[in-house]
């Protein structure tokens, strides 16, 4: 039974540290300015290789409607 007491104590300490890491992550994010300039942050999925405003994926035979109208 004693070994169980030791293990549960270790787990509780580990759990506390784990919880603490989440708080530190949130604190870091706020301090680091992660919650500022939100609109800019939303655009980090795009870059020069795969830019904003370009559809990246379509079935071969289906053309975007806009292109059809233009042609």
């Amino acid at each position: 039974m004693e070994s169980w007491d030791i293990i549960i104590t270790l787990l509780i300490i580990a759990g506390f540290l784990f919880f603490l890491s989440a708080i530190i992550a949130l604190y870091w994010a706020a301090k680091n300015g992660q919650f500022e300039s939100i609109e800019k942050g939303a655009r980090v999925v795009f870059d020069e290789d795969e830019p904003e405003g370009v559809e990246m994926d379509a079935f071969p035979q289906s053309k975007p409607k806009k292109q059809k109208n233009h042609s």
């Binding site: 949130l26 939100i38 609109e39 939303a42 999925v45 795009f46 830019p51 405003g53 559809e55 990246m56």
Partner: peptide, 23 residues
């Protein structure tokens, strides 16, 4: 959250809400 804006080519509707969703 990666695929939808990436394929459509437009950013997510409300990025603020997405961060709130995570936390």
């Amino acid at each position: 959250y990666y695929m939808i804006p990436k394929v459509i080519g437009k950013p997510i509707y409300s990025y603020y809400l997405s961060l709130m969703g995570f936390w």
